[in-house]
Amino acid sequence: MDVFMKGLSKAKEGVVAAAEKTKQGVAEAAGKTKEGVLYVGSKTKEGVVHGVATVAEKTKEQVTNVGGAVVTGVTAVAQKTVEGAGSIAAATGFVKKDQLGKNEEGAPQEGILEDMPVDPDNEAYEMPSEEGYQDYEPEA
């Protein structure tokens, strides 16, 4: 019985440690998101679009440190934060509304985080759909 109880105690310690790591990862992701939003706020009209992409990228980098179902929630929060940063930029006159959601080359930025393969159960990952990809044929 002692062996059984000791095993359960060790398992509990492992769960607590994993929860603490997840909590730490979420806190880091939130900190990076805040950094990115402050970065966007300090940019001029020309830099705002690039700044919004930076927020998304920093958040995406930190999301990889967070495991399990938390990833889905962090990704949703990050996307809403990026959308909010863009709205703030438009409201303050840093950028025109028609410039939001495009990178410096004018290509749409939507789907940055949505296409990231995420499995809350950590069982399997699927690649994003290939609808947006084109076949590449090298020139002879």
Rank of each mutant, 00 (worst) to 15 (best):
G132Q: 10
A85I: 14
K21M: 14
E104M: 14
E139T: 03
E83M: 10
D121T: 13
V66D: 01
Y125D: 11
G41Q: 07
P117F: 04
D119C: 12
E28Y: 08
P128F: 02
M5V: 09
A85S: 04
A53R: 05
G73I: 07
P108E: 14
E126I: 10
G14D: 02
D2F: 06
N65R: 13
M127Y: 12
G14Q: 15
S42N: 15
K58W: 11
A124F: 13
E126L: 05
G41L: 02
E126W: 03
V49W: 14
T92Q: 03
T22R: 01
T81Y: 12
A91G: 06
V70S: 01
V15R: 00
A19K: 02
V71M: 14
A30E: 00
K97Y: 15
A27T: 03
E83I: 11
M1F: 01
E28H: 07
T64M: 06
P117V: 10
T22Q: 00
Q24R: 12
G51C: 15
I88W: 14
E105D: 10
L113E: 13
K10T: 05
A107D: 09
K60V: 10
G132I: 13
K97P: 11
E46V: 08
V3D: 01
G132K: 06
P117E: 02
E20S: 03
V26K: 00
E13I: 04
D2W: 02
H50C: 10
G68K: 10
K96V: 13
G106F: 12
D2V: 00
L38A: 04
T59R: 01
L113R: 10
V40S: 00
G41H: 12
G86Q: 14
D2A: 01
V37M: 09
D121I: 09
V55L: 15
K10C: 02
E46W: 06
E131S: 13
A27D: 01
A27E: 02
Y136L: 09
G67L: 14
A90L: 14
T44V: 09
S9C: 07
A27M: 15
A69E: 02
A140E: 07
S42W: 15
Q134T: 03
V52P: 01
V3K: 02
E126S: 05
T75M: 09
D121V: 04
K32Y: 09
I88D: 04
V118I: 04
E105M: 10
T33E: 00
A107L: 12
T59I: 04
T22H: 02
V49C: 14
G31R: 10
G132R: 13
K34E: 00
L113C: 03
Q109D: 12
F94H: 04
V82A: 11
Y133A: 07
V3G: 01
F94V: 03
K96W: 15
E126M: 09
M5F: 01
T33S: 07
